[in-house]
Amino acid sequence: MATLKDYRMDIKPNWCPGCGDFSVLAAIQKVAVNLNIEAEDMAFISGIGCSGRISGYVNAYTMHTMHGRALATAQGVKLANPDLHVICAGGDGDGFGIGLNHFAHAARRNVDLTYIVMDNQIYGLTKGQMSPTSPQGMETKSSPGGNPEQPINPLQMALASGSSFIAQAFSGDVKQLMSLIEQGMQHKGFAFINVFSPCVTFNKVLTYEYFKKNLVNLDEKEGYDPSNRAMAFNMVEETGSMFTGLLYKQERKTLTESLPKGSGTNMLTRDTFILDDIMKEKLISRYV
């Protein structure tokens, strides 16, 4: 039986008191225990940013990669060993700025992993520049006259890219956050969870109070059908993305299931190997 103790590290996170990322950390650890995943069977891959440090606070096989490349790395891990439970996490700059390309392609590729973005609409680690999700007009260190650009919409981006599981959560509601992470981890395929995770130090606009006041809970909304893609697009428009809950879920083949027969059946993660004569002949036959 996995316990919370297994997942805890004796390291104090270097996050500011009140940072939304604490809740995400706690939620991931609790869900892993709830799902009874042993620490050695979890691979937790993160990007660079305040949020990216999260993998170092969990005891599992964890990797803190490069700015924007967490998803690329995490897909490699899962493809190599499908028995692992793979979680990937990072910030809004990491996932929707420098790493946006991988986000779109991971979504359509549908490798079975859970991608959690701690979206604080700001660059936290570099001390407060605007991010791709900062609202237009928001003043930051790199937009002193207000952000001149329109923000990206990660949910519509995920929908358009073919993500098979899309949800949004809020660090201020740990119960729902946990529930969505749990559903994401149980989903077979690429599961994307965007978490409003306030930066209490550099984002004075999108605060806990702001989210508490404005968020609608989709999970409690009558008549909403998360298997309906058109409805999902509409819901994002209607609410201006200010909602939490499961937006969209679809069952479809993962990449491994779509690859040619035999793919991934002998990844040699631990064994050694030598070509036998039959396989050797097969290998060289086209060159003799």
């Binding site: 490069m66 490349r69 790395t73 493809l79 190599a80 991988h102």
Partner: peptide
């Protein structure tokens, strides 16, 4: 895997290698 770019292909290889392959 044919990746979306070389940033991804090399990172994927690192991930797979981390997993032991």
């Amino acid at each position: 895997v044919q990746a979306e770019d070389e940033l991804c292909s090399v990172a994927m290889a690192i991930g797979a290698s981390f997993a032991g392959t």
